[in-house]
Structures are given as structure tokens and as C-alpha cells.
Design a protein around this nucleic acid. Sequence first.
RNA 1: GUGGGCGUAGCUCAGCUGGUAGAGCACUCGGUUGUGGUCCGAGAUGUCGCGGGUUCGAGCCCCGUCGUUCACCCCA
Length: 417
Amino acid sequence: MSKIQAPKGVHEFFPPESQEFEYVRETLIKSAKDAGYQLMELPAFEDTDLFTRGVGESTDVVSKEMYTFEDRGGRSITLRPEGTAGVMRSVIEHNLDKGQLPLKVWYSGAFFRAERPQAGRYRQFYQVGIEAIGLADPEIDAEVIAVADRSFKNLGLKNYRLEITSLGDAASRALHKVELVKFIATLDFDEATMARAALNPLRLFDDKRDEVRLKMAKAPLLIDFLNQASKDHFERVQSLLTSFGIAFIVNPRMVRGLDYYTGTTFEFVHDGLGAQSGIGGGGRYDGLMAQLGGADHSGIGFGIGVDRVLLACAAENSISTKISEAYSLDLFLIAMSEETKSYVANLLNSLRNHGIRADMAYGDRALKGSMKAADKSGARFSMVIGSDELNSGEAMLKNMSTGESRSIRLAALHNEF
RNA sequence: GUGGGCGUAGCUCAGCUGGUAGAGCACUCGGUUGUGGUCCGAGAUGUCGCGGGUUCGAGCCCCGUCGUUCACCCCA
């Protein structure tokens, strides 16, 4: 009998490293909440049509990476490969766009793509995302980008860059596509590359091979085909980012893999992760809601890969001290004898009722072992309680970093924190 | 999905041209009868990923398989 193991390509987080995952995720969420975004908690699986219509049938995500199955009622169900389509579906279904706009929401959870796993790419991965729906102003584009950027800065990250471009409106894109296809037809590529070009000619812009880059160097760029309105919008976004103090580079060769993107698009890239270097990305998706049967509202949002941001934090060693501050205990209690154990358990419980972060040594270990546990816990203070302390009502409160201790009345212990 | 590397103790890894498994860290106990971190000593821990094959004999060679990793591809 073989051992049961986790399915291929899933990423699990357990102690002590799970603290880092939690810290990263909560920090990402906090900057969304602080900017007025509210939670949407959505299903991890949806009707398959939502993704084929929303994300686009020609995308790799839909055509070969979805976990699709038939449920017991014969419906075609797909584990969500991304977050935006589900948010749009719910907004339309529950008429959330009938109130004041923009509607600003955030989400967090697991997403699924059946890809070949490698560092930073998992079959179940975690994203935190936001969506701002129903406002076409460049100010909201800048806000969305700033929310992501602020969360990275709050995590202490430095070695990342923001790349932005504009995909313009549908008319501009159609015009450009004609010219791009014409240009590519003059080039000599292998069969696989031509097949990619046929599916989406923009793809060739982010090919990693030097010979392809060389051949594409003179290809017509979409950014040169933008109409005046798109151009003005993109200019405004850039000047806002500059005044926010957010550094960026315009990358007109940036390619996004989901069909719904229009206008402003962006990507946060970190070079410490290997081949999977995108830690977050997003953009405007002005036709998506109408495409899914809702009102023709514009929208913009991002998805940030929690797994990858965690890798970036590890590469920069940016959060280890923040984590010990965020999670360490105030006090660690040690019961010296069998008789004091239940007293200590009660004391511990009442300290926790006062909001003090505390724990105690369980089990019958020698004092040395218990002190070691206190040390390991990272608690700032420790206290040993035996029958002497019980009788006198006082015990020594020890500062674990300086080693100093002083006598404290047990009844007033909670006032020390 | 395609190609290369790697799977040995909880972790990081050593193990020579095949001869029957080891180190460091971590853990438990003790040195120090009620005060951690350093030091010293002792102890426990393995289907050598799994399944076949070759061989007198396989952790080592061969085949398959699963996982992982790196690149392509794709993207968070």
C-alpha cells in the first residue's frame, strides 16, 4: 500500500513557515481594506461557461489549464483559475452595481490551474485581488496600482518594478492587429511559434528567445495605435503615478494572458524568483461586464500572487523581524508541580480574557525543558509558578531578553501588559 | 504538454570502481534538586520515494512509475 500524498503541484503552508504566508496575505489585504475596498467571498468553483466567455476561449488558461468536471447533476463545473470573472458574475447576479459607483471589492483565496509546477507556479495557488467597478477615470487606475504598490512597500520589498502599458480600446486593437499580422507574415518562424502567433499575435512580444526578440524588434507596437482618448487617459495615469511617488516603466511589449484586458494594464515584476517573476498584475477590462450579460460598466483590478510575494519576501529577507513582532507572545507560564497546574491554567485563561497573548508549558517536563519551550515561543516574559508562589500570591516575572526578573502580585499580573 | 537535474533520519546533506547506512542541525534526558539562550555528555529516529530487473550481493547499475526542481510554455 502506497502512502497517500498531496496531489501534484499543490503548495502547503505549515508551522512555522505558515506565519510568513499569513503575514503576507494579511498585509496585502490590509492595504485594500484601508483604501475602502470591501470583502467578496466567492465560490471556488463556477459554471464553466463563466470562464470560457469571460476569460476567453483562445487563452491558454481556458484552453488547457482548467480543472473542469461534470458534477452529479450533469453540470459542467470549473475550479476558478482567476478571480475577476467570478466577481463580475456575482455583481451582475446580485445587482451590486445598482448603488453608488465605483463598487470597490477585494477577495482572497485559492485558485487552480493545471500547469506543470515549478518554483512560484502551483496548481493550487493563492491570490489577493481587488476590483473597482463602474468608474472610467484615470484616478481609479492610479488608485488600484497604488494599493498594490503600497502593500509591497509595507512588506519591505524593494527589488521589484512596475511595468505599465495601455492596450487601448477595441477599435485601436483591431487596427493594430491587422498591421501586426502583416508584419509577422514577413518573418520566418518555426511551426510552434507560427501557431502561437495565429492564436494571439501579441504573444510573440514576450517570447524569451533572442532570435525572436530580434525579429520582433521592429514590429508595430499597439501603443502607437491608440486613439486620442486612450492616449490622454494613459498620460493621466502616468502623471498621477509620478505624483504619488510610484516608480514605473512603460513596457509597450507587455502581454497579458487573459482576453478581457483593455486600456491601462500593469505588472509587478520581481527578479529574485526565477522564471515566474510576476508577483502581481492587472488592468482595465471595460467590456467584460457587458460580455457576461450585465450593464456596460468599466472596471479595473489586480490579482497578486501570495505564493510569489512570499518568495520575494524570502529573497529579500524583508519580513522576518516583522513577523516576530506580529506573532510573538507576551507571556509564557510554567507550572512547577501537579498541584499548581490547574491554577496556572486558570490564570492563563483569565490573562487571555484580558487580551494578553500568552501560553503555558503543558506536559510534565523538567523546568529546563519548560524554560526552553518559553524561549522557543518567543514570549517577551516568562513566569514560573509553584506552591511557594501560590501561597505568597507573588511570582517572579522574567524578561526573556535581558534576563532580569522582578516580583509581581499574581492578582495584578494582567496590568503588566 | 516538451526537455534536463534530483529523491538517503523531522530538516540540510555525505555515502569512493556495487559488499548490507552516517554527519550536522532539531528533539528528549543529564551535567546544574526551582529558571532559557553558550558549553559538555548520553539517547531515540530510516521500508535509502515506490515497483520491477541485473547480480552471490543494489542506496549505488538498468527499466518503469510517482514526486520535486530548472528551463521552454504560461502566468499570480
